[in-house]
Design a protein around this nucleic acid. Structure first.
Length: 565
RNA sequence: GCGCCAGUAGCUCAAUUGGAUAGAGCAUCAGACUUCGGAUCUGAGGGCUAGGGGUUCGACUCCUCUCUGGCGCACCA
């Protein structure tokens, strides 16, 4: 159920009836509850264009609104706002319908498209660190969301598996021979050790360079070593993904190296299209309004990541058939993507009907607002961070029942990982993000734990009741009417979150919903003996739909819920 | 130097993309427990939306200048 769309249609009809075909602003949620549920603000602008009194226009529009069971009240206020109040009976009936649906009444988009979501993209030379966290979490939730809404989503993990450092790494791998297995457990250490060898030993450095050339030349032995190395490194990533409860597997890996053979073609193609220029020995494409060109091929003949990105766009559009490509990459690369997108357009790799979007996000900072580092200034390994989250969650769980070690571990994992993900997703991704353990694992405020608690509370009631609910849903009072309205807004929220690639729309929605439920819970007993059966059924239905909504939306965000906490 | 992004309560964040009196949480203070799970709920105080100017019925939002901070600016990814 898309409420806004329904309301817009009513207004459109009224305007058509009046013979007005000016474009008008659409219906929005009311700023304050006392104004109503929704408001139409188009009368003021319309009045101006038509040279009429806005309140009068508003009145005419209201008079021309078609008959509908949706609205119980329309009124005109201020300079010409049209305030709308949805009818409680209509809401209740719609809720009863959506409650019985496994998608809770959320439809699929009428024009599903193929979407590529490019996210996570770790570098195989090193271990995943906190820098990959946001991309992985935001990208995964976005992919889930778009897919839930009926789009054909292709997740792409554009791993960095190619470049000069791999010569060094496989040379070192070979040198270690049999004993390499153990050293690879810690990629960070492995990299450092290899780097040390590279810096200290001229012969080793030369061999490394030689291996880079051999790799590029397709030398079998080197390729084997390299594949082995990538495999191990990917194994580390998968450990992280699994711990993060993220849906990335090997089938989503589309490595940089897989584009190697197309890079020369890209250069050739750009040349044919007359876009390529020589500048300072390199081959570049200039973009109007930009002083610096995009470098396609270095003066030594090597390719750059821009070249690979172009090849990837071409692949995604022409082979995969993507109509929307979302790059979940940090904000510092905004300039790079602007250039790459511009060149992709010029070269025809991405026609106008393909949406190229940089889903950018801010840096992760520590509590004092500095870049997130370990005490000695190193990067924080992602796996360590996640383990810490689980440990801290254990401390935060107050035990109600006697749980086994195993149960505690499972609960702590869901709570801890959920907290890390939720706190990231709950703020506007564009801004920098201050990572604060205490806040994210807090029991209060806009946190995952608050949602999980609300969910567990409802499940507890439903367990206690233990029977099928089979009554009619009624919205008894203003609080319940607001709750019903919230529940019915789910699709609107999901759709706008998908449109703007903004997961925090969903978390604020969930927080509102959970808060309203908590108020309801405090003031409306359900199972108590003195509650009339009819009301009990209705309240059970409301509670159940709240729980279902929480669970479904959290799942889309990649956060799990628990029957008990 | 050029460019991009940001600046909202003491702190962390919202504000439906131009709508009415800028909302939450934390922290502070004051309340509600014979718990359908108090990990909750009720209330109070706290703001010149960095600053100036402009656009208009209406500005946190758009334009412009200034200040502050962050980040990019040719052969790393």
């Amino acid at each position: 159920m898309q409420i806004k769309q329904e309301l817009d249609a009513l207004f459109q009809e009224a305007l058509t009836e009046m013979g007005i075909d000016e474009p008008v602003s659409s219906v929005v949620e009311a700023g304050k509850p006392e104004f109503g549920d929704y408001q139409f603000n188009g009368a003021m602008a319309l009045a101006k264009k038509l040279g009429k009194n806005p309140r009068q226009i508003a009145q005419e529009i209201v008079d021309h609104l078609p008959e509908t069971p949706m609205l119980s009240e329309t009124s005109i206020a201020g300079p010409g706002f049209v305030n709308l109040r949805l009818d409680g009976n209509w809401l209740a009936a719609e809720l009863q319908k959506s409650g019985g649906d496994e998608r809770l009444g959320v439809g699929r988009v009428e024009d599903p498209i193929r979407v590529v979501v490019d996210y996570s993209s770790p570098n195989m030379a090193k271990e995943m660190h906190v820098g990959h966290l946001r991309s992985t979490i935001i990208g995964d939730s976005l992919a889930n969301l778009l897919s839930f809404l009926g789009n054909d989503v292709i997740r792409q993990n554009h791993i960095g598996d190619w470049g000069t450092q791999f010569g060094m790494l496989i040379a070192y791998l070979e040198e270690l021979g049999e004993g390499a297995e153990g050293n690879l457990k810690d990629l960070e250490e492995f990299y450092k050790a290899a780097k040390r060898r590279f810096d200290e030993d001229e012969a080793f450095a030369n061999k490394s360079r030689e291996y880079v050339v051999k790799l590029q030349g397709g030398d079998v032995r080197c390729l084997e070593l390299w594949e082995d190395f990538i495999d191990k490194s990917l194994g580390h990533c998968e450990e992280v993904y699994s711990k993060l409860h993220v849906g990335l597997t090997r089938e989503h890996v589309k490595a940089e190296s897989s584009y190697n053979e197309e890079l020369a073609q890209i250069v050739e193609d750009l040349k044919e299209k007359g876009l390529l220029q020589e500048s300072r020995g390199a081959r570049v494409v200039f973009i109007e309004g930009d002083e610096n060109p995009l470098i396609i091929q270095k003066s030594d003949g090597g390719y750059l990541y821009a070249t690979t990105d172009l090849a990837a766009i071409r692949f995604r559009v022409h082979t995969l058939g993507a109509k929307r490509i979302a790059y979940v990459v940090d904000a510092r690369q905004a300039g790079h993507f602007q250039q790459v997108f511009a060149v992709a357009r010029k070269a025809g790799y991405a026609p106008e009907d393909v949406k190229l979007e940089h889903v950018s996000f801010g840096m992760m900072l520590d509590k004092s607002g500095r870049p997130f580092k370990t005490r000695d200034g190193g990067t924080v390994k992602l796996i360590q961070l996640l383990d810490e989250a689980v440990e801290r969650a254990k401390g935060a769980i107050t035990q109600r029942d006697a749980y086994s070690e195993e149960e505690i571990e499972k609960i702590a994992e869901i709570v801890g990982i959920g907290a890390v993900k939720y706190s990231d997703l709950s703020i506007n991704r564009e801004s920098n993000y201050i990572f604060d353990w205490d806040r994210m694992l807090s029991l209060e405020g806009n946190t995952s734990l608050y949602q999980q608690y609300a969910y567990a509370r409802i499940r507890s009631i439903l367990r206690k009741y233990g029977k099928e609910i089979e009554g009619t849903l009624r919205l008894e009072d203003e609080l319940q009417r607001r709750m019903g309205l919230k529940l019915l807004q789910l699709e609107d929220v999901l759709r706008s979150a998908a449109r703007d690639a903004m997961p925090h729309y969903i978390t604020s929605y969930l927080y509102d919903l959970a808060t309203i439920f908590m108020k309801f819970y405090e003031t409306h007993p359900i199972l108590r003996d003195d509650v009339p059966e009819e009301l009990r059924q209705s309240r059970l239905l409301l509670a159940k739909q709240t729980a279902d909504t929480l669970r479904m939306a959290l799942e889309i965000l990649g956060i799990q819920v628990l029957e008990r906490l």
